[in-house]
């Protein structure tokens, strides 16, 4: 199914900005909020994993329901997971389209990667403190 992805700040993500290797940061940044009816439609429950794909890339996230979201819209807090699927195109403004990325979402059994393994995929070397 197709959805429109929005990203933004959340207090949970904000609380862990200085502990980004912490599993709680991963939960805050790798959770996708969906309308509960949409969750029924793609047959996932809270905590299940989904593969989210855009024209730019794909990433595995865990689902959480949010009644405040209109059907067809999903939200991920800003951070490395959301940025795996946001396009770097800025249309000459310097600013990527963080608020409107068309994505498709399907259930998966694949794990949600840790922040460091996500960066390893980008060519980095995990640093564990």
């Amino acid at each position: 199914m197709r959805f429109l992805l929005n990203t933004g700040r959340t207090i949970k993500q904000g609380s862990f900005v200085e502990r980004k290797n912490n599993p709680s940061y991963q939960v805050a940044a790798a959770t996708i909020l969906m309308n509960p009816v949409d969750m029924l439609e793609i047959m996932v429950e809270e905590g299940n994993h989904v593969r989210v794909k855009s024209d730019t890339g794909e990433v595995v996230l865990q689902v959480s329901p949010d009644n405040g979201l209109t059907r067809g819209r999903v939200f991920v807090s800003l951070g490395p997971y959301a940025n795996h699927i946001v396009s770097p195109e800025t249309h000459g403004t310097g600013m990527p389209d963080f608020k409107v990325t068309p994505v498709s979402i399907e259930p998966t059994d694949d794990p949600v990667l840790t922040v460091s393994s996500l960066m390893e995929r980008c060519g980095g070397l995990p640093y564990e403190d």
Binding site: G79, P80, N83, I85, P96, M119, C122, G123, G124
Partner: peptide
Amino acid sequence: GAHFPKACAEHLAR
């Protein structure tokens, strides 16, 4: 690394 799209993170690693 957290706040730029993936393509930018990849170049930072390069």
